[in-house]
Design a protein around this nucleic acid. Structure first.
Length: 110
DNA sequence: AAACTGACTAATA
DNA sequence: CTATTAGCCAGTT
């Protein structure tokens, strides 16, 4: 099974980037991976969030795939909840469930 | 140590 | 935009 996120590992960097996403913004898995120093570790980002406990204070719902859509997990209701959280932050979700990355994509500031 | 798994992305059609 | 194929990294077994 998945290791606890409290366990020191490569995921630590990923969690740090996710926490950096400001309110009302979203970031792609690849973006988080790149910021964490793993330009090809997009899958690891998803895997890290998969192991993330519900009591985590990380804004995991601000992490979407490269199309701005919410990736569906084994438990389908999680994706639905994620969309609600994003809408609550003022994001407009398209009919296909994609956010407007042109507008909401987070760009880390220098 | 090797194989399997997976909230992904890029390339191609 | 979608569908399919291949490559990638780290964790689990």
């Amino acid at each position: 099974m998945a290791a606890d996120p409290r366990t020191p590992s490569a995921w630590a960097a990923i969690y740090a980037q996710v926490q950096r996403i400001p309110y009302g913004r979203v970031a792609t898995y690849g973006q988080i991976a790149a910021l964490a120093g793993k330009p090809r570790g997009a899958r690891q980002v998803g895997y890290a969030l998969y192991a993330l406990p519900v009591d985590s204070s990380l804004p995991w719902h601000r992490v979407v795939n490269h199309r701005g859509a919410i990736s569906q997990r084994a438990e389908s209701d999680a994706a639905e909840e994620q969309q609600l959280l994003l809408e609550a932050e003022g994001l407009n979700i398209g009919d296909n469930g994609c956010v407007d990355l042109r507008r909401y994509r987070w760009t880390p500031e220098p």
